Simulated scan of single mutants.
Amino acid sequence: MAGYLAYSDRPGPGWYAEPFSLSWEEFLSNTVYILGWALLLSIYAIIIALVLFGLVRLLERFKMPDLGVAIVGAVLSGLLSAYIVLGIGWYIAIGLPAIIVGLVLGMLFGAFLLPQKRSIAA
């Protein structure tokens, strides 16, 4: 299982439960619990996103080449995404695969979605 830590407080290998064995009450309780983590994470994510967005727009304003903006955006976005995943992962005993996915998705976002494409006439 991706992200499973043998030394965590989770059941060990060989533990299996009935599929969909949660009651609606347990489901709602877990949903509220997960939303609490999302709220904690959103505070840090918003601050980091504003800094990253502002920096990339500043580089574009100073006419940095598109490839340079994409590289800087990818590196910074990937590292900051990994930082957020590592931070929240400390609380929930997350595994290395989830951290790598956060890094890669952050890099893709920073390289392809964050930079604005300049028009040819500009």
Rank of each mutant, 00 (worst) to 15 (best):
F62P: 00
L86F: 06
L40I: 14
L58E: 06
K63I: 04
L79I: 09
L58M: 06
L39M: 15
L58C: 01
F53Q: 13
F53T: 09
G36R: 05
P19V: 01
I84C: 11
R61H: 15
M64V: 15
L80W: 02
K63V: 08
Y83F: 15
T31C: 11
V75C: 03
V56P: 07
L86E: 08
V56Q: 12
Y16V: 11
Y33G: 03
V72D: 00
R61A: 12
L39C: 13
W24Y: 14
L40T: 09
L58V: 04
I48N: 02
I48Y: 02
S21E: 14
V75R: 01
I71P: 00
V51R: 06
S21T: 09
N30H: 11
A45W: 09
A38H: 05
L50I: 09
G68E: 10
G36T: 04
L22P: 02
L35G: 07
L67D: 05
V85N: 02
V56M: 10
F27K: 10
V85H: 05
R61M: 08
F20V: 03
Y44I: 13
I48L: 13
T31L: 14
A17R: 02
M64W: 11
G36M: 06
R57L: 13
L67R: 11
V69Y: 02
G68Q: 12
S29R: 15
W24N: 12
A38K: 03
L79P: 00
I34N: 04
S77L: 05
L67C: 06
G68R: 14
G73V: 02
F53A: 04
